[in-house]
């Protein structure tokens, strides 16, 4: 049975932009794969088409059928993790066995506050004056 796992050090799942991110990718396959790749990427999800940006990757060529390898990346300054009503942007680490479809991912948060930015409360509010007293009309 094929088994894939990806973990960060101390099981940390929230990171500040620009900070290092390290962990271990573990795989146990029935046969030795051609390669195993660990990817750091962001993706959007929501109403429209999905967008994906692979920021960094590390590749282990001709690995054993079962192994565990450390990885380390440095997060870029952005984009931050956020969610609105129409679109969410999420970050993830993914371990992929090549060739083929076997993959597993670990979702993480990249934000200066440590939490995903919540934009759902911004939409649909009436316009307000600078003093916050209400619509300008």
């Amino acid at each position: 049975m094929n088994n894939l796992r990806i973990e960060t050090l101390d099981n940390q799942t929230s990171f500040a932009p620009g900070s290092p991110i390290a962990g271990i990718a573990t795989w146990q396959m029935e046969a030795a794969p051609g390669a195993v790749e660990v990817r750091l990427f962001w993706f959007t999800d929501g109403k429209g088409d999905r967008d994906v940006g692979v920021v960094d990757r590390v590749r282990f060529d001709n690995p054993s059928a079962a192994d565990a390898q450390p990885f380390a990346f440095t997060l870029p300054a952005g984009p931050y993790s956020f969610s609105g009503k129409l679109i969410s942007l999420q970050w993830a680490l993914e371990v992929v066995v090549l060739p083929g479809e076997h993959a597993t991912r670990l979702e993480i948060v990249v934000s200066p506050t440590g939490a995903e930015l919540d934009l759902t409360t911004l939409g649909g509010q009436p316009d307000r004056n600078a003093d916050g007293k209400g619509p300008t009309r």
């Binding site: 999800d45 929501g46 109403k47 088409d49 609105g84 759902t120």
Partner: peptide, 11 residues
Amino acid sequence: MKARDNPFRSE
């Protein structure tokens, strides 16, 4: 509702 929680999201 957040986009990533919407059951009809693109994923």
